[in-house]
Amino acid sequence: MIHAFLQKSGASVLYHIQDWGRMGLFLIAAGRGCFSRPFRFREMVRQVRLIGLNSLPLIIFIGFFTGMVLGLQGYYTLRRVGSESILGMLVALSLIKELGPVLTALMVTGRAGSAMCAELGIMRHSEQFDALECMAIDPFRYLISPKFLATLISVPLLTLIFNVVGIFGGYVSGVILLEVNPGAYMNGIVSGVTSADINLGIKKSYAFALLVVWICAGRGYFVHAIKNGGFGAEGVSRVTTQAVVYTSIAILLWDYMLTAVLI
């Protein structure tokens, strides 16, 4: 009994060490692929379109309503202490430091990260990576590193758009629908937001972008090696769901840690 237990937990520990090692090597190879020549600029642009541009409508929608709700909640909370005038600052800081980076990363995970994971998983099962290797084409330079770069370009830009649209949403609900003074709203933003706040937001969005592409692409690439990943379409769907969950958890964990360290 004890023997079987030790054997099982030993195997599980070994598997997890192996899994982390694999993911670590994956990150290194993807980083190296970004600098290998010839650089696949067109593939990167294609990925920016898939990851960035296609997520744009969703980001605008979510950003706008997040701002609206912040304006609404913020207004009634601030009114209790008679400080409606700082609504602009409250909305802007909430978006720039927290909600913008986190919600954008979560949306990109759900929309582009899952697609990326499934695509790479299917490519693995249909032996496309084997074919590339047999042609002596580095799959990282050719396919994976462009995804890394495209995600690192797209997510911060989407975050920026999310923030701007969100601040506008706050304006709509706070100033147009309720009775905050427009000058006070704008002034609160200009005087309340420091460059340190903006820096924190930017650092977060880069960190989250890396998490999204690393976990989602990595899980898809290694679909064949993941325990209970298994073969076929079912394996791909299981691993994709798992990747989305892992990425979301990682984003929220990192959000807390980055905030604690950088604030």
Partner: peptide, 9 residues
Amino acid sequence: FQGGALLDS
């Protein structure tokens, strides 16, 4: 390869 292994994209 068994299924051709053409690059999908």
